[in-house]
Design a protein around this nucleic acid. Structure first.
Length: 451
RNA sequence: GGAGAGAUGGCCGAGUCGGUCGAAGGCGCUCGCCUGCUAAGCGAGUAGGGGGUUAUAAACUCCCUCGAGGGUUCGAAUCCCUCUCUCUCCGCCA
């Protein structure tokens, strides 16, 4: 059965393309030579890996390699001699016997080596990315730093309502029917609600493809475990995913997974870079650890829509590209004229694979302050190494890992929430942002309706 | 879902009864030569990865990889098993 791949006790091996001794995630050599940096990073990220054990394994790995390769060399040489003897009809029995013994020895050593590499591999898969120097150091979100704000909080001469109240009153959000059909943390949109969801998707795709230079992609929404390992969701965050029974397939938690894996195991040319992709997809998350959190409204659902921005870039430019990518995501909220702020996440709050992350937090006047609506990250070569995405500076150069970035541009459901809360009126109606009117068939306002 | 064919280097494609095959040949590409220019022609080079040595250089050297994993063997691209993918036909379906 297909799911075997990832579950045969060799899980880590799935990212390497199956060949022994090839790339081991966070570069083995690099880790070996920067143990102090790794140690510090692990601490800042509230993460732990047994580096002493790592050193032992690394050392014995190399010893074994030397030993086993010498033996293999001898086997190759003698096998050649045997071939020659056979050809001339001379006896070779003694050599064959000797090689039989040698073969057993090699087999034993190879097994030892495989065990060591498996363990090393697992350790490396558990080491998070090393934060960039510019990332604020801190234990959790309280150490995050606000970088800038845009726009103004809207003034209301009434008590602004949370979007779920507005949405239910207008009839456009139907949580009851959604939970009947599926379960809690799903929503069914009616009429102009559904239309707004679709309009936002189109507005975002149009802006990113038309103004910001992204190429639109529509990828598979079910992906295999190799793809999830490439972007870092597996093996550590399996419980966040929905898996298809009996298949090596998972519902994507974000379009980052299929779109980044577009170039898995590829070597790009220098002038292929940078590549900008944007993709609309539904996303699926089990929200396993989120009991009781954000139970109302559109904020935290098992299924939600998102337009995602993904970049493959030359390592030298990746931090500039992060600024641009963040600005591209921000431009959507600017077009909608909704107040937000940009926050640099601290070392303790960043995702596992990220070297630096900006969150864009949108203002939700009705339901409580600033909420993340986009998360823009530079992964440097972390994902590229796992997913084996490389490029050549010139046709003769050795392949190097690209840098990958991504960010939401934006989460659709949360954007709907932001519109409902920021554009609500005293009479309970919601006016349509100018940028959305054409997409919504010229509608100016959403007024209550029953469905 | 049923029946069959296949998976080799950037691409095409050869690999005989298992024995210098990491792989003939062609195309493409790179460098050089030649040539008023171009084309043609000539010569050389042209996979990825992991070790050793070294300055984490160059050079040298060893090992691994012919879809993936496992097996047989002194030795496998070549034989056996499992899986994945592609193609053709039938069935089914938006």
């Amino acid at each position: 059965m297909p799911e075997m791949q990832g579950e045969r006790g060799k899980g880590a091996r799935i990212i390497s393309d199956g060949k022994r001794g090839d790339k081991l995630m966070l570069d083995l050599k690099w880790v070996r030579e920067h143990l102090d940096v790794v140690e510090e990073a692990l601490e800042h990220r509230n993460s732990k890996v047994d580096l002493t054990r790592f050193k032992e394994l690394d050392a014995s790995r190399r010893e074994l390699i030397v030993e086993v390769e010498q033996l293999k060399n001898r086997r190759n040489v003698v096998s050649g001699e045997i071939a020659r003897l056979k050809k001339t009809g001379e006896p070779a029995e003694d050599k064959i016997v000797a090689m039989r013994e040698l073969g057993d020895k090699i087999k034993g050593l190879d097994e030892q080596l495989a065990e060591i590499e498996d363990e090393l591999n697992r350790m490396l898969l558990d080491i998070p990315n090393i934060p960039d120097k510019s990332v604020p150091i801190g234990f959790d979100e309280t150490a995050n730093v606000v970088i800038r704000t845009w726009g103004e909080k809207p003034e209301f001469d009434f008590e602004p309502k949370p979007h779920w109240d507005t949405g239910i009153d207008l009839g456009i959000l139907d949580f009851e029917r959604a939970s009947k059909i599926a379960k809690a943390r799903f929503v069914l949109y009616w009429d102009l609600g559904a239309r707004m969801e679709r309009s936002l998707i189109n507005l975002m795709l149009d802006m990113h493809t038309g103004k910001h230079g992204y190429t639109e992609v529509f990828p598979p929404i079910l992906v295999n475990s190799a793809s999830l390992t490439g972007t870092g969701q597996l093996p550590k965050f399996k419980e966040d995913l929905f898996k298809v029974e009996g298949e090596d397939l998972y519902l994507i938690p974000t379009a980052e997974v299929p779109v980044t894996n577009v170039h898995r195991d590829e070597i790009l040319a220098a002038d292929d870079l940078p590549r900008y992709y944007c993709a609309y997809t539904p996303c699926f998350r089990s929200e396993a650890g989120a009991y009781g959190k954000d139970t109302r409204g559109l904020i935290r659902h098992h299924q939600f829509n998102k337009v995602e921005l993904v970049k493959f870039v030359n390592p030298e430019t990746s931090y500039d590209e992060l600024e641009k990518l963040t600005a591209n995501a921000e431009s959507i909220l600017q077009a909608l004229n909704i107040h937000y702020r940009v926050v640099a996440l601290s070392t303790g709050d960043m995702g596992f694979s990220s070297a630096k992350t900006y969150d864009i937090e949108v203002w939700l006047p009705g339901s409580g302050g600033y909420r993340e609506i986009s998360s823009c990250s530079n992964f440097e070569d972390f994902q590229a190494r796992r997913a084996n995405i490389r490029f050549r500076e010139n046709p003769k150069a050795k392949p190097r890992f690209v840098h990958t970035l991504n960010g939401s541009g934006l989460a659709i459901g949360r954007t709907v929430a932001a519109v409902l809360e920021n554009y609500q009126q005293a009479d309970g109606a919601v006016s349509i942002p100018d940028a959305l009117k054409a997409y919504m068939g010229g509608a100016e306002v959403i007024t209550p309706k029953k469905f």
